[in-house]
Design a protein around this nucleic acid. Sequence first.
RNA 1: GGAGGAGUACCCAAGUGGUCUAAGGGGGCGGUUUGCUAAACCGUUAGUGGCGAAAGCCAGCGUGGGUUCAAAUCCCACCUCCUCCGCCA
Length: 417
Amino acid sequence: MLDPKFIRSNPDLVMAGLTNRGAEIAPVENFLSVDEEWRKLTAKIDERKARRNAASEQIAQLKKNKTDASKLLAEMKVLSDEIKTLEDEQKGFERQIEEIVMAIPNIPQATVPKGKDCRDNLQVRMWGEKRKFDFKPLPHDELGKKLDILDFDRAAKISGSRFVVYKGLGAALERALISFMLDLHIKENGYTEVMTPAMVLPESMRGTGQLPKFEEELFRCRDDELYLIPTAEVSVTNLYREEILPSGSLPIKHVAYSPCFRREAGSYGKDVKGIIRQHQFNKVELVKFVEPDKSNDELEKLTADAELVLKKLNLPYRIMQLCSGDLGFSAAKTYDIEVWFPSENQYREISSCSNFESFQARRANIRYRPAKDAKPEFVHTLNGSGLAVGRCFAAILENYQKADGTLEIPEVLKKYL
RNA sequence: GGAGGAGUACCCAAGUGGUCUAAGGGGGCGGUUUGCUAAACCGUUAGUGGCGAAAGCCAGCGUGGGUUCAAAUCCCACCUCCUCCGCCA
């Protein structure tokens, strides 16, 4: 969430930022008026409480001296009832403010290109040579079926649409990719591995920004207040929720493998073929907690760390900077990595690397001490896929297929298979 | 799932309705002393949010409610941890 004090003192800046991303500005105006009411009321309540505290001391003295206090008691009874009424009103305002502020998205950084949707995203760089095929490359799902390593029909039987069964070398390849990515980030890029729960409390979803606005995209348990994570970002970022990290502990860099669960509500008819868009998929996620003035540098590094996976696999890709209108709810700046799919003759997203600045840290109350006895400040959080394993699997099938319908194995994966 | 017990500040811990403005100890920080270190002694130490120019005031003892003029303290619910029993990969 944004800092209420920042909204209060810079409403024009906030509204301009929201307009750039195509969001409503009404919540800001709404906030300003409720906030004003709340501040007035709070001052009023504090005043009355100060009076009550003073009277309490008097009553204690009177009782001690065995003097009659009934007049003061009666007075305080009235005052206390009044305080209670005002406090109920105050809680109402607080709930309203919380609801409003939690629904306001992050403000894009000044350097983020202005635009409406993904067509206005900016290509930052490209890498790799697109392979020249002397045959017509098959789409990954057809190839997977032919090789008997992907089974869509049986997956649909047991779980419905948008699921897949990996079989034989398919399962082995998926597993190899996970191990390869983890090892790379741990050994070469300096991340510490964590393996976290795939089910989390609503507070965690609020911490990273999935709730309260995007509940329809989540799988929820019927009998327990638990949600399946749509990305390891949720459980890993919330590791340090409600904590003050000691000075010198930043940056913290975690890598986590997790299954991810998404309802994909509203994407009917989109990417229905293949394993590009599934209700359950595997992902290796990179998450960083850094000092505020370093977060943009750290975003460049994080993106480079994710890119290294594709470089080692020799898969052509490009880096896109998302325009203001295409940014996710919590992000202030985002690079997407898109990998080449020869059968479709197009690039497709395989990673999204974002700087959330203090947006998630404030929601999740994650702070650090800049120096030993300094006051705590909110950290900046970042994350990025490093990478989406299923999409990487698909890209390997497509880019490494041979004319005879078999598959070449990327050099770096051989020791994992 | 059942039965007990416990949550107080960086840590340990006292506190069963009113100078609790939370005792005491440890640790940290600052100081005195000192050739240096240690010891001793003195001082200091919850983060945070709100109002205010400031002084200050208000909130805060796991969380949320309630009782009361007044709650760390009494009542209710919940959460977490510990011990034992049962079940279980």
